[in-house]
């Protein structure tokens, strides 16, 4: 598509509350409560409570209700992947982003100009969500969480293999794995099941509700058990226990047997990050596109303009510029730079 007289910056533009579509009268992933929001996925820096109306995939709406309660928005509307709807003068369609269950790219069109707001996305396969689908567009809005060439995806299966090998090398020690509660947790469980690990996987209490929701939404996770909430010594030598990252170095972790502290995150590719967190077994498993994925995807969309929402925008803007793409940083506030 060619550029229309209507510059996209005039009908879709960043505001203090987030990206705003004028003709549609809605924000995408707003940082503050707004009248009408379209939400790409359930992570808390993208999906926030308190909006008048929220449009999202059925899975994302379900996640928001579990996290924030059924009254988290004045009104929830669901939109299945691939279905086009109209909001005001704009048309809106949600397309899988491959980031977590229910995650979507928002395809917005107005007067023949198409913008794709991809939210957070990855190109690597993930058994817990639909794969990313590239959509040709005029403006591609992208994240840049791992936008440095030092970030190169490694197959998640290989990292799972390292976890299982450590488990058999150190059968007397609890394997305590830090995971973000939404997405990473369930993906890690699913990957373990695919690798043939069928023992009970133990969960920190904070992870249980979203695992239950994933199961309800059709993602089988196998036998799970909650670690008892009281302060007793749980032991669990030789078992896998999943916990939110903040619990790894918390008093909670003292109940396990000489734990091997693991952490599943794209940041674990950097040794210093693992060291800072005292991680003994870093697992490089990311729910974001790596450097190659970010660059390739932006070029694949054929967009003349690429806007970068959050992360290491300077490197990505520079690289796309070399490919003749006008890229710029939006410097939107409110996104978690560490998100993974």
């Amino acid at each position: 598509m060619s550029m229309m007289p209507d510059q996209p910056g005039t009908w879709l533009h960043p505001t203090a509350d987030g990206l705003y579509c004028g003709p549609g009268g809605f924000h995408i992933d707003p940082a503050r409560p707004v009248e009408r929001a379209v939400v790409t996925h359930g992570h808390s820096d993208h999906a926030r409570p308190g909006h008048g109306a929220v449009l999202a995939t059925p899975e994302t709406v379900a996640i928001m209700k579990v996290r924030y309660g059924a009254d988290a928005a004045g009104r929830f509307e669901t939109l299945d992947y691939g279905v086009t709807t109209r909001i005001g003068d704009a048309s809106v369609r949600l397309v899988p982003a491959g980031h977590i269950l229910g995650s979507a790219q928002v395809v917005v069109e107005w007067r023949g100009v198409r913008a794709v707001v991809s939210g957070d996305y990855k190109r690597a396969p993930d058994p817990t969500c639909a794969p990313f689908e590239p959509v040709a567009c005029d403006v591609f809005v992208t994240e840049a969480t791992f936008a440095l060439p030092v970030f190169r995806a490694v197959p998640a299966e290989r990292e799972i293999g390292r976890l299982l090998r450590s488990l058999s090398d150190e059968p007397g020690r609890t394997h305590l794995v830090g995971v973000y509660g939404l997405g990473k947790c369930q993906r890690l469980i699913a990957l373990l099941r695919h690798a043939g690990y069928d023992r009970t996987i133990h969960l920190h209490g904070a992870l249980a509700p979203l695992c239950a929701l994933y199961e309800e939404l059709g993602v089988a996770l196998g036998p799970l058990a909650r670690v008892a909430p009281d302060g007793g010594r749980a032991g669990l030598p030789g078992e896998i226990v999943l916990a939110p990252p903040s619990a790894l170095a918390d008093r909670w972790s003292r109940r396990f047997t000489d734990p091997v502290t693991a952490f599943a995150s794209g940041w674990m590719a950097i040794r210093g990050r693992a060291r800072q967190r005292g991680v003994e077994l870093p697992l490089v498993i990311s729910d974001h596109a790596d450097w190659t994925g970010l660059v390739r995807t932006a070029l694949e969309t054929g967009a003349d303009e690429v806007w970068v929402t959050h992360g290491r925008d300077d490197a990505l803007v520079h690289e796309l510029g070399k490919h003749g793409v006008a890229a710029r940083a939006l410097a939107l506030v409110g996104f978690d730079d560490e998100g993974d």
Binding site: L148, P149, I270, R271, D314, A315, H318, E319
Partner: peptide
């Protein structure tokens, strides 16, 4: 490697060998 990308990477990683 593109010198700017190398420099940004080095600053982020904090260790030349890595």
């Amino acid at each position: 490697v593109d010198p700017l990308l190398y420099e940004l990477s080095r600053d982020f990683v904090g260790d030349t060998a890595e």
